[in-house]
Nucleic acid binder design. Structure first.
Lengths: 356, 356
DNA sequence: CCTCAATTTGTTATCGATATCATAATGCTC
DNA sequence: GAGCATTATGATATCGATAACAAATTGAGG
């Protein structure tokens, strides 16, 4: 597959004039580099005719703008960073989509990083991102290492924390109370007559949202006089489908008369439901199960899964909007620094009291 | 939430000395900027003692390296780009994880973009990435716009196409034949005695891997003398769970005696199975269903889903490895330019002939 | 004690674009 | 057609790091 009939300098297949610069395009067209630079920006004042000629040359020569040079000079990197715990989670990818959409036509690009639910990885990623000088940064959650906080404070760029309401916000917040949301679900199910509540989901610092949901569960069960709640931890967050299945087995062994089990996410709820069915139990007949997050799987699954719908996409859009506000340098604050996003209970088959 | 007791220049909460440069760190320590620069790289020759003093100063001042300046000078951006069709797809995120892992300790960072299965979006993303001068680029699939191809050729960086075997590779390829893989699944099921095969999944150019699977299906059914295959398209790729459910209804209306249905992915297979169960059909008793991709859901689901397991993670690792080889400028070719990755049939409950 | 090599540090030019200011061309009004 | 505003283009310095080369320091060997 190697070609012999070419110069033997180590060059890549198909690659030719590797280093094509704006100055060369300029010379080719017969204008100055500055004019070429202007032609690339829509606001700049270049005559339509010149721009056309330049763009033709750009096309003919195959020139591609070099932002690394441009951003050094303009002190604008042209991107914002967003860190999410997991890339393979439709909730977070919906948020990422929201950000991307909100950024459209702003000339800003999104750079995504994933922290794998680890504050240490988050710290490293924050540093890696800051080294490229993002114009703003969107984080998931409010739990960061001290060093990460220091770096973010120093950076002098707007920061948005999302998906929860941190005790000590760094800057802007777009999210909701996970504990309140879980509480709402408990109350909704209690309102349907359920009394003996179980819960699947850990308490580790890795998943602060999960911990908040758990504490919302325990608190509410207590408040309703139905306590103490029966909570099982299993595995390392994020709890997988498989771990959901293992957890419900443990839970039912320990508390066999449990009526309804709430899970930290729909994925573990799905695992739990499937495991129950595999063991010949009926859901919701023998045991009712609910999740959190309203993933696609929950509406498709048979039985469909009761859950909390979160405005994931909206979180993304709002977070980006707050960032853009801040970048616009709007002297006055845009109202509160905390933007609350919505959630709602979605009752489905998996907790239907009428069904058998 | 606004503070009045501060200078009113528009400064961000917590932000102080915004522009801290290497030269200032150098002055603080009493060395030259060059020495500071060296201290940041492990290979450089700086005495241990000096490096320690510099790093302490970096810490004390909160200095963060500016890569946009560095990469301009060194002509090394320090990142590679990878484009995947969808961010919310565990197959592709496994590949992304493979790339990330392979890049560890190379000093290279991964920048991920998602094309939403659109060649136009891919073209735009390729341009956006190239403007930041990645040192290499990993693509999904072999179907690109002409302009994208031109840009990639001009860029003079290694390119790896993954997840399929393109007719006209740009440079390196790491993948497998989707049509052969689907063919293998058809043969495995035919071997179990199935005769009347159906298929769910489109033919659009948006999802070339899906098209290849479909053609592999049709070809093999024909070859086995079981044709013509009964194929249904539904919706725009990637086919969702819900569309899988709708598709199987259409398929069974049109060809009620179908014995087994193969789906372009596990997600549509799952949707199809759940829809069947909702309608009171037994899977595999009344209809057998198989998927493609071996997503987590397939092993958890009840019934568990027969599928093709693809080495998604390996694709990522290998793609990154090929890229690194090419970057090492290894004069000689590293064997073939096409790296084949494995796949295997995973037989599970959803096509179990013994079950009812 | 001198020479040469190895190690550590410094100086200067440069990467490729853009900010800024200067200048040329154009158009409009009276 | 002079005067002035407006638009289009150019020249130069600069962003903040690193490459490349130079110089200073140290140590070993004869």
């Amino acid at each position: 597959m190697k070609n012999e009939d070419e110069p033997k300098d180590k060059r890549l297949k198909g690659g030719d004039a590797q280093k094509l610069t704006m100055a060369e395009v300029a010379k080719y067209v017969g204008v100055s580099a500055m004019t070429v630079s202007r032609a690339f920006r829509q606001d700049a004042s270049v005559s339509e005719e010149t721009r056309k000629r330049i763009m033709e040359a750009v096309d003919a020569l195959g020139y591609v703008l070099d932002l690394s040079a441009g951003s050094l000079s303009s002190r604008r990197s042209g991107f914002i960073a967003a860190l999410v715990p997991s890339i393979n989670n439709s909730n977070f990818s919906d948020t990422a989509r929201g950000i991307t959409d909100a950024l459209e036509d702003t000339g800003l690009q999104l750079l995504l990083g994933y922290t794998d639910y680890s504050a240490e990885k988050e710290e490293k990623l924050i540093e890696a991102m800051l080294r490229r000088r993002p114009e703003g940064i969107i984080l998931t959650g409010g739990s960061h290492t001290d060093r990460a906080r220091r770096m973010l404070n120093k950076a002098g760029i707007p920061v948005v924390e999302t998906w929860e309401i941190p005790e000590e916000p760094i800057n802007h917040v777009v999210g909701f109370s996970n504990s309140e949301a879980m509480s709402l679900l408990v109350r909704a199910l209690a309102g349907q007559g359920y009394r003996r509540f179980g819960y699947i989901g850990g308490t580790t610092a890795r998943d602060t949202r999960g911990s908040q949901r758990r504490s919302g569960f325990l608190r509410t069960v207590e408040e309703l006089g139905l306590g103490p709640g029966r909570a099982i931890s299993f595995g390392v967050p994020p709890i997988s489908m498989e771990q959901g299945g293992q957890a419900i087995v443990s839970l039912l062994e320990r508390w066999p008369d449990t009526e309804v089990v709430l899970c930290v996410s729909d994925l573990s709820a799905f695992g739990a439901i499937m495991e129950c069915k595999r063991r010949g139990m009926r859901v919701p007949g023998d045991i009712a199960i609910a999740g959190f997050g309203d993933y696609e799987i929950s509406s498709i699954c048979h039985p469909s899964i009761t859950t909390i719908n979160v405005d994931c996409y909206g979180i993304g859009r709002q977070a980006a909007a707050r960032l853009l506000d801040a970048l616009q340098g709007s002297g006055e604050a845009t109202g509160d620094e905390i933007t609350l996003t919505g959630y709602r209970v979605v009752l489905r088959e998996s907790t239907d009291r009428g069904a058998q």
